[in-house]
Design a protein around this nucleic acid. Structure first.
Lengths: 156, 156
DNA sequence: TGGCCGCATTAATCTAGATTAAGAATTTCA
DNA sequence: TGAAATTCTTAATCTAGATTAATGCGGCCA
């Protein structure tokens, strides 16, 4: 298990690799995302201090996520499938909880509702990343988020 | 750890409980889903033989999923947080993989694309549940799925 | 210091999928 | 078996959010 120091903007993982790693964020902020055929970017997850970030694609398949740093960060790198991962079992379960919520929101909530849930759940991150990345995480365009925020401000 | 025999239609878990359990499906088919304020139903996950199904809401919060049987089924019931769960670590990771894919699809793929991915990934389930439940899983209405299928049939 | 680039906002138009409404087919079960 | 309930399909209309386009605003660094 190595420790890694990375600069804002640095990419730590790209799609296509089969031996992907898991990163524990000691300080800073990372994100994972995909880019589709049309070049559109979709943020899958933010990982601030205390979070684990990884591509959970099954190990026999090539990974599909980019992972890069939104701030200077320090990481612990885990090779997957090694026994020591047992201590982060609670982190896996936490990730499942977040993803369950995320799927349900994407299916059942409007853009406004998803935005409000996001600022409740990640109030700190809101200050640390550009608006367009929050839009990307929510699955809407920056323009739509801008509109939504405007409507909310001037009395819903 | 108990074994449970349930009939088609039987509900094994409802939202609001804090001591939720995990169910390993030995035979049959279960689903988990939410119902929103307007009474709309969104299927979160199907679980055929060999799958683990559970509400992954953090343990300190009330659960948000219904779980019921779509076929007569036999289950093994796990209390969460007990040590024996260590052997299903691979199942947790598999669930993470499925959810990652699901989030990315919900954000970036059209209804048609999601439908095609679904029939690739769960060809058997397609035969075992009504169309409207597949629509619900995909996050679209039964009408939209019907249209999509029609278009696909008559030469895309 | 000034030019450039990424970011945010607003507005006009467009579209995938929702909603509503029937009708036909299929399942369920008394 | 037969009536009621559930499911599927088609079609007309509506709408949240996408797309496109134009403008303004910092911040960055040569």
């Amino acid at each position: 298990m190595r420790r890694l120091l990375i600069k804002k903007g640095q990419v730590v993982q790209i799609p296509g690799e089969t031996q992907t790693k898991a990163y524990y964020v000691e300080s800073g902020l990372l994100r994972s995302y995909v880019i589709d055929q049309k070049g559109r970017e979709y943020i899958f997850m933010f990982a601030p201090e205390g979070w684990l970030i990884a591509d959970s694609t099954p190990p026999e398949l090539p990974g599909e996520l980019f992972i890069d740093a939104l701030e200077d960060s320090t990481l612990k790198v885990f090779e997957k499938g090694t026994e020591h991962n047992n201590d982060d079992r609670p982190k896996l379960i936490k990730r499942l909880g977040v993803l369950q919520k995320r799927v349900i929101q994407l299916m059942s909530a409007s853009a406004i509702e998803r935005y409000e849930h996001f600022i409740d759940t990640y109030p700190n991150i809101t200050q640390r990343v550009p608006q367009r990345m929050i839009a990307s995480y929510l699955g809407i365009t920056p323009e739509a988020l801008s509109k939504v925020k405007g409507e909310k401000a001037r009395g819903k």
